[in-house]
Computed example of a mutant assay.
Amino acid sequence: MRSLASRRENDTLLAGRLYDTGQGYPAFIPTDSVPAASEGIPAEVYVLREPERSLSVLDRYEGPEYLRRVLTLRDQRRCWVYVWCRSVSGMTELPHGWCES
């Protein structure tokens, strides 16, 4: 992200569920419900230097298992989020977020 982002903004908590794909990266599925202020999936928020170029790079990086969607955050910021578009059947849910070991 360093080469694509001009800065990191305040992180957020996303309404949804996160799963371990077993492939070294998580699967995020958003929900429409609004969780309590301290609940949700931890997420980093970045401002892109050149959004058109950067988004095409990120789309290739994320691959066909993800769709890019605009979500409105709790503080009303709107941002792109990569959402898992395949089945999560058999995957372990990660209620506290993704932590690479």
Results as ranks from 00 to 15, higher is better:
57 V>T: 13
43 A>Q: 11
100 E>L: 07
25 Y>D: 03
73 L>C: 06
26 P>D: 05
97 G>H: 07
84 W>R: 09
2 R>W: 02
15 A>Q: 03
23 Q>H: 11
9 E>I: 09
44 E>M: 12
66 Y>R: 11
100 E>D: 12
42 P>H: 12
83 V>R: 11
7 R>V: 09
89 S>K: 15
96 H>L: 10
39 E>V: 12
91 M>R: 07
43 A>Y: 14
84 W>A: 10
76 Q>P: 00
96 H>G: 05
48 L>C: 06
17 R>V: 02
23 Q>K: 15
58 L>E: 10
17 R>E: 07
11 D>F: 07
2 R>F: 04
5 A>K: 04
43 A>R: 12
80 W>V: 00
15 A>M: 02
26 P>C: 08
25 Y>R: 06
34 V>I: 15
31 T>I: 09
9 E>W: 11
100 E>K: 11
48 L>M: 09
52 E>D: 14
100 E>H: 13
89 S>H: 14
62 E>Q: 13
76 Q>S: 09
98 W>L: 10
74 R>K: 08
94 L>Q: 07
81 V>F: 07
47 V>A: 12
13 L>F: 07
36 A>D: 15
11 D>Q: 13
52 E>L: 10
92 T>Q: 14
12 T>G: 05
12 T>M: 09
47 V>W: 03
51 P>I: 06
99 C>W: 05
37 A>T: 15
19 Y>M: 02
47 V>I: 09
49 R>H: 09
8 R>A: 07
44 E>P: 02
20 D>F: 01
77 R>Q: 12
70 V>N: 01
56 S>F: 04
46 Y>R: 06
52 E>G: 05
22 G>T: 00
91 M>K: 08
85 C>D: 15
69 R>I: 00
99 C>V: 12
46 Y>Q: 05
33 S>H: 13
56 S>D: 12
82 Y>A: 08
98 W>K: 07
89 S>Y: 13
37 A>Y: 15
5 A>T: 04
33 S>G: 04
27 A>E: 00
96 H>Y: 11
100 E>Q: 13
53 R>Q: 11
22 G>F: 00
59 D>G: 06
21 T>H: 02
63 G>Y: 05
98 W>C: 10
29 I>R: 03
44 E>Q: 14
22 G>Y: 00
71 L>V: 05
70 V>D: 01
44 E>W: 08
73 L>H: 06
76 Q>D: 09
68 R>K: 04
61 Y>K: 14
38 S>P: 08
56 S>N: 09
72 T>D: 02
27 A>H: 01
24 G>Y: 01
23 Q>N: 12
97 G>T: 10
76 Q>L: 03
75 D>T: 04
98 W>R: 05
88 V>T: 15
12 T>F: 07
13 L>E: 02
86 R>P: 11
18 L>T: 02
25 Y>S: 05
18 L>V: 06
5 A>H: 04
89 S>L: 14
41 I>Q: 12
49 R>W: 03
68 R>T: 00
63 G>C: 07
91 M>T: 06
80 W>S: 00
6 S>Q: 11
93 E>L: 13
12 T>H: 07
50 E>P: 01
3 S>R: 07
72 T>L: 02
61 Y>A: 14
57 V>P: 02
72 T>V: 05
31 T>M: 03
22 G>S: 01
86 R>T: 10
